[in-house]
Structure formats: C-alpha cells, structure tokens
C-alpha cells in the first residue's frame, strides 16, 4: 500500500499546478478560523460573529465541516487532472508496461484520495477544536466531543466526491470536460429532484432523491444556517420545537459509501475493458 501511495505522491509532488492548488486548499481551510475575527462596525452597529455564539460546541462541528466541504472542489481539480493527465501524457500505458497492474493503478489513486480526505478531516478537526476552545461558551469535554459524527460524515463525503472525480477523469479523459460533466450531472440531479417535487408531485420524492449520488453527499451534512437561527429561536421562545432534522444519518453514510465503492469499481472496469 505504501508503495502505491508513494508512486502517486511522486507524480503529484513535482506537478506545479497541483502543488499550488493543494497549498491554496489548505491555506483556505486554515483561514476558516479567520472568520472568527470578523468583527466589524457599521456606524453604531457592532458586529461580532464570535459573540453571536456560532462557535459554540457542538454546533461548531456542524458549521465548520459544512463550510470546509465547500472548498473540496480545489482538491477535486487536482484529482481529476492527475487522472486525465495519465491519458494525455500516455503515461497510463507506460505505467502498465513498466509493471503496474490495472488494479494497482486504480488503488494508488484511491489511496491518495483517502489520504487527502484524511488530512483534510484532521485539519478541519484541529482547526475547529482550537476555534471552539477559544470562543465557545461551553468547553466541558462532554459537550466538546458530542456531535463528532460530523467529522466522520465530512471524511466520507470527501472520499466519495473524490472517487467520483477519479471515475470522471478515467471516463472522460480530459479534465476540463470531466469538470463540465460534473456540473451537468449536478444540474441534472437538481432538475430531476425539482420535477419529482413540483411537477409530478410525487409524495415520496425524498425517498428517491436520497439515492442520487450528489444529493446523498449533500445530505451527509445539511446546511447549518437555519439550525443556528432555530437554536436561537428555541432559546428565546420556550416550547417551540425544531422542525428540520440536522443530524447525520447512518443510511446516508451507507448510500454514499456504496456510491464510492461503485465509482472505484467502475473506474477499474473501464480501465480493464479499454485498449490503450
């Protein structure tokens, strides 16, 4: 496994564009913490995000993993290009001739994807912990360590998204077109969900929509903003209950994991079937 990982990292290490994107990605991840310093004054109104309570445990786990996930597109570009490059440089052929099996080739990419997701998760975890410890109103460990499933969900989400990138890279062979297909795919999912919901007025449209890959990934960590308002509202008006379910569901994790396995398997299948 280490050999396969080192082969892939060797390819990325010397690629200037990839290096730049990776550095930008982790810089942006770190600067999530800088949101805390948003503390501006508009005339007489003082605006201090930290004081609003958005950095309270355990809510901060939800907020940060959600925000950090937006940045994953940076690493996606690296992953799609490192796959499509193998086609445009014809180095996939050369790798196989040099004695890498097709299975090893896919695994070396997949291990790298998992490593990226792992480092990113660690990064977000540590940043969030530090941010929370500084600004949260509650720092009892029982509260700090609750809702950690958002980190797990974040990791699963990244692995799935990047695996989709690998698959698109192999399938389309050109990075720009692969990204184009990704965008088309997300538009298609949105239209399909919209049709089910508004036009065909299916009652159980959500039951079907939860199986769509991009939608399933999005469902892993739901948007945290209305929850924040809800938390405040509940605090103010005792007795009212929060309508929306913001928690991480096991079924969603399962669906996304199955998609991940499917993307990797399809990548392997495509490689195996094609003549180079």
């Amino acid at each position: 496994m280490l050999r396969l990982l080192s082969i892939e990292l060797h390819k990325i290490r010397y690629h200037r564009g990839s290096k730049l994107l990776i550095i930008s990605y982790f810089t942006l991840l770190t600067s999530l913490a800088l949101v805390a310093s948003i503390n501006f004054e508009v005339g007489p109104v003082k605006f201090d995000l930290a004081a609003q309570g958005i950095f309270n445990f355990p809510y901060i786990w939800h907020l940060n993993t959600y925000l950090a996930a937006v940045l994953k597109i940076f690493l996606m570009l690296v992953i799609v290009s490192m796959m499509s490059n193998e086609y445009s440089f014809n180095t996939l052929k050369q790798n196989l001739i040099d004695g890498l099996s097709k299975k090893e080739f896919v695994l070396s990419k997949f291990y790298t994807v998992v490593l990226f997701a792992l480092i990113s998760t660690l990064f977000v975890g540590i940043t969030t912990l530090i941010l929370g410890l500084i600004y949260s109103d509650f720092t009892e460990w029982a509260i700090v360590l609750s809702d950690l499933e958002y980190l797990l969900a974040y990791f699963i989400k990244l692995v799935a998204f990047f695996s989709l990138g690998l698959f698109l890279g192999v399938w389309i062979k050109r990075s720009a077109f692969a990204i184009g297909v990704l965008i088309l795919w997300s538009i298609f999912e949105a239209i399909f969900i919209g049709l089910m919901r508004w036009n065909w007025k299916w009652e159980n449209h959500e039951a079907i929509a939860q199986f769509l890959p991009l939608n399933a990934m999005a469902n892993l960590i739901k948007e945290p903003f209305t929850r924040f308002n809800a938390v405040k509202t509940v605090a103010n008006q005792i007795g009212e209950t929060v309508q929306k379910d913001f928690s991480v569901h096991f079924t969603t994790i399962l669906i996304v994991s199955i998609w991940t396995a499917l993307f990797i398997y399809l990548t392997y299948l495509l490689l195996n079937k094609r003549d180079l």
Binding site: R3, S6, I7, H10, K11, Y14, H15, R16, N85, F89, N90, T91, K93, Q94, N95, D98, G99, L100
Partner: peptide
C-alpha cells in the same frame, strides 16, 4: 511516454518505484 513536468531523473525514480 514520460511526465513532461518531471526531470529525467525524477521520471526514472518513478519507474524504479513501479518496478521495485
């Protein structure tokens, strides 16, 4: 077929890793 952005030595190092 080699990686155009790598030097000759870096390319050969990669082949060594593949060929063990």
């Amino acid at each position: 077929n080699f990686y155009p952005y790598m030097t000759a030595r870096q390319n050969l190092e990669l082949v060594c890793k593949i060929k063990e």
